[in-house]
Design a protein around this nucleic acid. Structure first.
Lengths: 247, 247
DNA sequence: TAGTGGTCTAGACCACAAA
DNA sequence: TTGTGGTCTAGACCACTAA
């Protein structure tokens, strides 16, 4: 972030279109351009950043593909309003997720400890069984009502000493980025429906055997190395996923 | 399908890159090019179809974005091996879905009738309550074992007389395309976990209250008009969805 | 060295929206 | 009529792979 500059670096190894993509994405993410705002037309980007129109369009196309902007011939290019659909294509935090659904999020830490990696999780993370993992179990609430139990396993090597920090009050995601320069850039997940075991049912305030939306996710860091294994148990009666398909 | 030609139509209203995209996709879908095959290099496509390199690349990029091909600098462009991930971004048939999972699909029609549209479904389809719908209830089996109950509501106006045709033996999807020129180009869906009601449980051979992955889907035709409302009840113990997220 | 895809340019014509 | 994004071209240089 601190290396951010608002211009194309000519002798960079990164392609111009990618540099421009990052610049524009940054302005949207930090709110300099708000949803609904028109962003500068192609002609202006061409002048301002000194690239050809094709190159500018390549950057804009990438943003459009991700749903961050909408383009309208004759009218212009506009910052898109975030939709819940992003929950199924983008890695977003519980906080973001709930805000998009119009609910007030809160969190209770159920347990936090260092554990040796069980065989199955070690396999998914590509580490050796017994390697140190941070296990963090949290209850997520929406408008004060239990919504989701989150069971997270972080490779301790990537965030040594995490449990000594204040992981309870703020966003874990931010903490990992600020203190360890650790971000999840990609993730794979499997979605299933399961019946709630008794213990989980009690925590979520549902009947035993109530249907839960169960998600297992492996997240990859900037070097494309797996760093987190996550289990999400969403209440079936309160949580749903939305997405769009193409033909 | 019968209008397919293996060349760019110059005076078409469709852009060249899109025509080329459809042509190449067609060759992949029908198996003319198999997964792992190298497809002609850009230079050959440029010659063969009489378009510029930029235009050819635009078509290839669209295919790459959808995961149908993989491009490798210095090596070439190759047909990708299909992954289950497509189940969450593309509209695919149960048959395709099961084949990708390595199972043998089969179908039993449970009921088929004309019904007046209930209010809730009419709302989702943008029609008036009472309008005619084709209701088709089918049990889908994988390797002979019940997997999914599919409850489909088709706007009868788009496929008049469908029930007099042979919708039982072949693919419904193909029938709609061939006889009514009807294709679903886009769909919205909501995914939830529910407990199986007794009747559904019996059909799916699971215990009452077993967890099901429940999907509600509205599909849109070529004119972007809703034409089908679908309810999918997947067995939680046998069916899962896979997808990838970006950071 | 030859062939592949990746990036970039300058310039053109078009369709669409708004004034 | 003006300004926007959509499409298309010919040509260039580069990086990577394999022979």
């Amino acid at each position: 972030m601190q290396h951010y500059v608002d211009r194309i670096v000519r002798d960079s190894k990164l392609p111009y279109y990618y540099q421009l993509y990052v610049i524009l994405r940054h302005k949207i993410r930090r709110g300099e351009w708000q949803p609904g705002d028109m962003i500068p037309p192609e002609s202006e980007l061409v002048e301002r950043y000194g690239v050809s129109r094709v190159t500018a369009r390549q950057a804009l196309e990438a943003l459009a593909n991700e749903g961050l902007i909408e383009r309208h011939r004759g009218k212009g290019t506009f910052v898109a309003y975030p939709t819940i659909e992003q929950a199924l294509t983008r890695i977003i935090s519980f906080t973001e997720d709930m805000r998009q659904r119009g609910a007030v999020p809160s969190t209770r830490v159920l347990s936090a400890s260092l554990v040796p990696a069980p065989e199955d999780i070690a396999g998914k993370l590509g580490i050796d069984p017994g390697d140190e993992l941070v296990r963090l179990e949290r209850l997520r609430l929406a408008d004060g009502e239990p919504m989701t139990v989150e069971e997270s396993y972080l490779v301790h090597q990537f965030c040594p000493g995490l449990l000594e920090l204040d992981y309870r009050s703020g966003s874990l995601r931010e903490l990992l980025e600020v203190r360890y320069d650790l971000r999840w850039v990609r993730a794979k997940q499997v979605i299933r429906a399961i019946n709630a075991p008794r213990a989980l049912a009690a925590i979520l305030s549902v009947k035993p055997n109530a249907a839960l939306l169960f998600i297992e996710r492996v997240s990859f860091n900037q070097q494309d190395i797996p760093g987190e294994y996550l289990r999400l148990y969403h209440r079936g009666d309160r949580y749903s996923l939305y997405n769009e398909l193409r033909g």
